[in-house]
Design a protein around this nucleic acid. Structure first.
Lengths: 341, 341
DNA sequence: CAATTCCTGATAGGCGTCTATCAAGGCTTG
DNA sequence: CAAGCCTTGATAGACGCCTATCAGGAATTG
């Protein structure tokens, strides 16, 4: 049961430790047949290099940067906190994580930020706008050998190594199914509110939602999408107008942030119990509204999981170690009043 | 940015490495004021011991055992596979995991198994029956210094260090809310099927379900619970009978395994579209039934997460390292057709 | 004030791997 | 067949911490 060391392998293969090491780390030329002997011994003994010792010896350090949107969006603030929490905890694992806040909605600024940090970091995680400039910046990083993980919102056309976030069109479809089932055979209109129609996650959620609504629940009428810029005051205004315009409104799906604006508008109109309201992201506000019954379902992505997954992926990419795909799948959380964490 | 080592701390405190080490590991008597100097230097430099080096030096190995139910329950089989997958991956982290299958439903057998493994392992994870004999066995392990984690089904009255699993009464409540909302203002009867009423997870789910149904949806009538022993053939028989007896059955909540029996019974009766059916655990069978529309909602616990969490907890307990609670919370997954992974 | 006991310093060796260097053969080449 | 290259062996030192031991000085005791 004792550990199998590199020495055991050398002994088994009838070679020296140095040669085994050369094979393991491709350090110098080794004759093919010698390499085979080593590999055979490794298999025979089921040798697995001790990662602790390896990393200690290499003195390897990882330097990562998380680029998040500035501003006061609750979810993004939580994401930032998770990054910081991870950063301090990972120091003992030789992982250094910096956090940069930038205007993610402005492609030029974001691209410039990404361009400027390439030489410092081994990996970058970024909440990205899907824009040609940004895509180029990401590709530039990747070409310089920096691992890039898109976080929360993807840039699928880029060369990013991985996307750490939920499947947003699937989230939209889920919202539609729940909306349709909750409404049963009720007729009426359903309002759709999005933060920005240039953010990929919002686009995809909308797409998935409309797809399922049209196919599965054709008796419900979807109103034209309202843009809110994720600003709750604006959300409130837009929602109030919508409520006034459509007395037969039976459902609201808010694709973006600013959920509290809808809560306020619904309460002001006294229609919180007539309208089925599905929101994204569990925050203090949405949580309270869910418990009160104003919000019926919250679709959530777990910020902590996303950050930890991104870090694991960045480490794996930096090491060229394989990923355990299933472990890095970010699930869509569905919360009703009863399964709140 | 270079690593802060124990040597730096010693230098800063004007003490020797040996003394700093004595403080860090409580190895020998150190004068309180000296200890304070060390602690001050640690804080000043933000020193964090290198866990890699520490574990390498200590040559610490962890030996854990997972005790799972034998039999062909899909979920338990998946759980076992996750244990094996983890076991092989953790070898390079010096963690050795054994897997034992036993008749968990028989308290005496389970207790005997637990009694017999105390001296070999540093930690045990067990899918446990909540029974006095089992509780005593768990307490015995804990008293001998073995960390015990209950998995999937808890034994709250025992001294187990941790429970790695979902909140089952919360899961039951969630099922009830979805059932009630899906049924809208429809009237009728709802059937409840449980595997065994001596398994704590099933009891709690039932309790949570009935609680919410009675309070929130009093117009729905809950039929007496049927016991299925998690055997799908029996489940099918019981369900067929229930369908025959109650033409006005509008909902089924299956608390345990054997979901395929219900699917067959519903299909044989041709009533899969009239009955809202909520099941537990995502397996090949339930997945297919969900996609087909026979099952409306699956409530799931992620076996992989539970196993990994249990391993992390066992390691932390063995080390007496603090846990990150939020990270070890096992969420209740809700799957509809659209958010299947 | 001497005899203990208590604290602290210094240092060696080890954990398993990586990196680097030098030496010693075996082999090819002209 | 000598010069050179290719492959392998042997070994030292590092990574940061742990464990153990010995020695010397400080503080306590009688």
């Amino acid at each position: 049961m004792a550990r199998v060391t590199i020495e055991d392998v050398a002994l088994e293969a009838g070679l020296s430790v140095a040669t085994v090491d050369r094979v393991l780390n491709g350090r110098a030329a080794v004759r093919p047949q010698t390499a085979l002997r080593v590999e055979k011994a490794i298999r025979l003994l089921n040798y697995q290099p001790d990662r602790l010792a390896a990393r200690l010896a290499k003195g390897q350090e990882y330097r990562f940067c998380f680029v998040l949107p500035e501003g006061n969006n609750s979810f993004m603030i939580e994401l930032g906190e998770e990054v910081r929490a991870n950063a301090s905890r990972m120091v003992s694992e030789r992982v250094h994580i910096d956090l940069r806040l930038t205007d993610v909605f402005d492609a030029a600024t974001l691209a410039a930020t990404l361009d400027s940090i390439g030489d410092i970091y081994d990996g970058v995680a970024v909440v990205a706008l899907d824009h040609p400039r940004v895509r180029e910046a990401i590709n530039g990083l990747v070409e310089r050998g920096v691992a890039v993980v898109t976080l929360v919102s993807d840039v699928p056309s880029s060369k990013r190594s991985h996307y750490a976030g939920i499947d947003n069109s699937s989230a939209g479809r889920t919202a539609a199914t729940l909306m349709g089932r909750y409404l049963g055979n009720k007729n009426g209109k359903v309002g759709l509110i999005a933060g920005s129609l240039s953010l990929r996650d919002h686009i995809e959620r909308r797409f998935g939602f409309e797809q399922v609504m049209l196919h599965e629940f054709p008796h419900l009428i979807i109103l034209p999408v309202l843009e809110s810029r994720d600003d709750w005051q604006r959300v409130e205004k837009v929602t109030a107008q919508m409520l006034a315009d459509h007395p037969d409104l039976v459902g609201i799906y808010n694709v973006g942030a600013g959920a509290r604006g809808i809560v306020t508008a619904l309460e002001n109109a006294g229609r919180q119990n007539q309208v089925t309201y599905i929101a994204h992201e569990l925050t203090d506000h949405t949580r309270r509204a869910l418990v009160d019954g104003t919000i019926d379902v919250i679709i959530n992505q777990n910020a902590g999981h996303e950050v930890r997954s991104a870090v694991r992926v960045l480490m794996a990419k930096a090491d060229r170690t394989p990923l355990i795909e299933a472990m890095e799948h970010i699930r869509i959380d569905i919360f009703v009043r009863d399964n709140l964490p």
